[in-house]
Amino acid sequence: MSSIEAQNLVKGWGRAKGLNDVSLRIQDGALVALLGPSGSGKTTLLRILGGLDAADSGRVIFDSEEVTGLASAERGVGFVFQSYALFRHLSVFENVAFGLRVKPRRERPSESLIRSRVTELLARIGLPDHGERLPHQLSGGQKQRVALARALAVEPRILLLDEPFGALDAKVRAELRRWLRELHHDLGLTTILVTHDQEEAIELADEVVVLNHGRIEHQGSPRSLVDAPASAFAREFIGDAQVFDGLVDGGVFHLGKLRVAALAHASGTKARLVVRPHELRVAAACGDTANGTIPHVAFLPARAKVTVAVDDGPSVVVALARGSDESEHFAKDQRVAVDVVQAFLQAG
């Protein structure tokens, strides 16, 4: 259990997957998600924090102790890799025991201690009878849990997970997310996980750090990210945001026949509209009131996603809660009226 602090980390300035002056502070016992598109530097940051990679400049501090020059094992970091990285030739038991067995002789626990510790971990990950299996005999979810147990065996201060659920199907992912949340609750271990899945980050983490082009764009609670993104990038990255560029004319932003009030903007200026699907409204209409046609409707368990081709403008996606009569009756080629309930309009 430790707090983590990164100061002015730079790695491969300006290059893809690089870091351009990143500073970060993470509280003891937090579960933090590093979120960003691929190439944003999130995995690089994780590896530098974990000591698997060295920064060109900057410092890493755990508690108040500088660990910049230390290897990952010396930092007391447990690492879980995206591809599991289990040792293919070793049994599940030996995989978990590995970190204990490679300890220098005087620090190495006795064989019986290793046995009891591994057995306990296997029980904790719900695989008490799988010790003799080889990795290729496990399912993806089981492998990921073994990888976690292996990382936990050396009793790290900090747990780092790189896209831990990336290779799993949706159902197993949800299950493992819940399980990880519980594990974090039980152990109280400071945990950082890298993901490109915003839903995962928002659901799982106490705190989300959004990275883009090697810079931090937002750091805060999941709720702050959704409700008050700290930057244009964070705003556009989160919540299936739809982004449209257009012109303001007489206090109105024109998106074809779709109009948005823009009182704060001067006439003739460019502006950018950021709107999420649930921030639009759609209603059946005919004649002059209609300003779009539906090319496609998708009915999901809780919502309907209605795509509307705005007359003389782009297509927008509108999300509706299922259940109302209207939402159930939208159909392809229907004429509708679409308008914006709430949106963010920024000067271009």
Binding site: G51, F79, R88, V102, R150
Partner: peptide, 29 residues
């Protein structure tokens, strides 16, 4: 195969030599 297994070994505290002898070589048998 990539370096993932060796990296995992290193992160678990194995020396480069231990990683090579205990992970790389047996994986290549």
């Amino acid at each position: 195969l990539g370096p993932a297994e060796e990296l995992a070994a290193r992160s678990l505290g194995a020396t480069p030599f231990q990683a090579f002898v205990r992970v790389t070589l047996p994986g290549l048998s």
